[in-house]
């Protein structure tokens, strides 16, 4: 099992990631990119007429969670929101 992981680690990780500083910075950057992508994608979906349950299902989170995170911003931005 350990060997399998080591082989795959060696196969898939670029050389830079032997430095933990680069790996940790990549985590932070990916989180930031994911947040930016989520903001833009949710707004685009709602402008295209998606409902909260549809967006939530696509993101794999609850409707309440997606609503809590994005509703205020989208309402203030004047994005038309479908209830269902």
């Amino acid at each position: 099992m350990t060997n399998w992981k080591l082989v795959n680690y060696g196969c898939f990780m670029p050389p830079e990631l032997t430095d933990p500083a680069d790996a940790l910075a990549a985590v932070a950057a990916l989180r930031r990119l994911a947040d930016q992508l989520e903001e833009a994608a949710v707004e685009q979906a709602m402008r295209d007429g998606w409902s909260w349950p549809e967006v939530a299902e696509a993101l794999g989170i609850t409707r309440q969670a997606v609503h809590k995170k994005h509703a205020k911003r989208l309402i203030e931005a004047g994005v038309p929101l479908r209830r269902r």
């Binding site: 670029p14 910075a25 950057a29 990119l33 930016q36 992508l37 707004e43 931005a77």
Partner: peptide, 24 residues
């Protein structure tokens, strides 16, 4: 930001979505 993404093979410029509206 771009360098950190590149270390895991991700390009910040690889996707094009409208910039989200920021209010509040």
């Amino acid at each position: 930001f771009e360098h950190s993404l590149q270390t895991v093979g991700v390009s910040a410029a690889a996707y094009r979505l409208p910039k989200p509206t920021r209010v509040g």
